[in-house]
Nucleic acid binder design. Structure first.
Lengths: 210, 210
DNA sequence: ACAAATCGAACCGGTACGTATCGATTCAGT
DNA sequence: ACTGAATCGATACGTACCGGTTCGATTTGT
């Protein structure tokens, strides 16, 4: 949220921004995107559905993609906690499972795909999308990776940056380019490939010297 | 190419399709996409630049994205050979290096990003994009993976399908969502993570009962 | 010679965009 | 209480592009 509305000093004369309209616009945009698809989404449609005027939308958001980005942030269920378990592998697996749960909500996925698409077409929006969404998810993973590094659990195969690219890349690729789901198997495989837990419970177990 | 023009028997009277117009349209589309970006690309612009009529374009392609997809296929420099070296890791590395070379041609990358974007917005085009482009690249990698599997070199960490998702996912993610380049370091890291070259091709690991 | 299918060019209708403007409303400062 | 500023919903307007049609001219195969 607050893409534009960084009211540095809310001591301004005049009518206040209508929170009611704002919410009505965001939910209307999200609903319409789910119903009609991003291609069928239109500013005028959002205005009609929300009962707001077109100008009210243009006043606060530079594009329909920004409305959707804002609507996404308003969806509180996007929150993914950063787990803190015993091992790097367990943390990563938990993170993936929680993320995949979001990735199964079809409207959310549809919006995400649309925003990623718009990112390719509109560079300025893309910058906002990266900062507001992608970077946040990446930071969450970074916490896990840093903790693993501090514990000496991080395999030296790849830099943390690349690890993040691999993890998010795989997720996004499934969403954008395939019909395969984000399921538990993928989580397990990713953990195995990237975190490489000592999967043999028989041999050298808990000694965390790699 | 030949998205529509699968004329099984060209025994039709009348004027033949102009190969000259076809090429002019494809190159004009590619150039304009590079110059103006996908958002600035328009059918009418392509018609003007190529000297063709709008109707000629609409007659042969269902959308501007399909024109670009066709133009991409016409670009012969998209060919990536399937290497056949001694080891799985070497094959994969070669494949990545060659692919990354394409990924550094800015116009090609721009077009690829636009097509992936359109895939998110237009499902029918997306299907064509997957078949004509994505699947082909994937098949090339599959050859490498199958060979590795036959040699018993494939780590059981993840299924070949997932391996492909990881490899292409990471590449696409860098193109779509980051400013990081497709460089040799990424190739090395990906090979290490995914192919995990055995430092010791020794004892236990070969008896992989699938 | 004839028919068929193409070509480039010029139109039309529709849709959405983005801007501008209106009267009404709400709020801060005086 | 009054004034000015900023908001609101709403409407109107010009622009751009799309998808489609029609036209005459040209090319090609029967």
């Amino acid at each position: 949220m607050m893409l534009m509305s960084d009211q540095p000093v809310p001591v301004r004369p005049g009518r206040k921004r209508s929170e009611e309209s704002r919410l009505a616009i965001l939910t209307a945009a999200f609903e319409l995107a789910a119903e009609l698809g991003y291609a069928g989404l239109t500013i005028e449609g959002i205005a009609t559905r929300s009962g707001a005027g077109k100008q009210t939308i243009y006043r606060w958001w530079p594009s329909k993609a920004d409305v959707l980005l804002d609507a996404l942030a308003t969806k509180a269920d996007l929150y993914v906690p950063v787990p803190d378990k015993e091992t790097y592998a367990a943390d990563l697996r938990e993170f993936l499972i929680a993320s995949f749960a979001l990735g199964r909500k079809q409207p959310v996925v549809d919006v995400l795909r649309a925003l990623m698409a718009q990112t390719q077409i509109d560079a300025e929006f893309g910058e906002r999308f990266r900062v507001v969404f992608l970077q946040r998810r990446r930071n969450a993973l970074s916490i896990i990776l840093n903790r693993a590094h501090a514990r000496g659990e991080l395999p030296p195969d790849a830099s943390p940056e690349t690890i993040a690219d691999i993890v998010f890349g795989t997720i996004w690729y499934r969403l954008l380019a395939t019909d395969r789901p984000l399921d538990e198997q993928l989580a397990n495989e990713l953990v195995t490939v990237v975190a490489r837990p000592r999967p043999k419970p028989d041999s050298s177990s808990h000694g965390n010297l790699t």
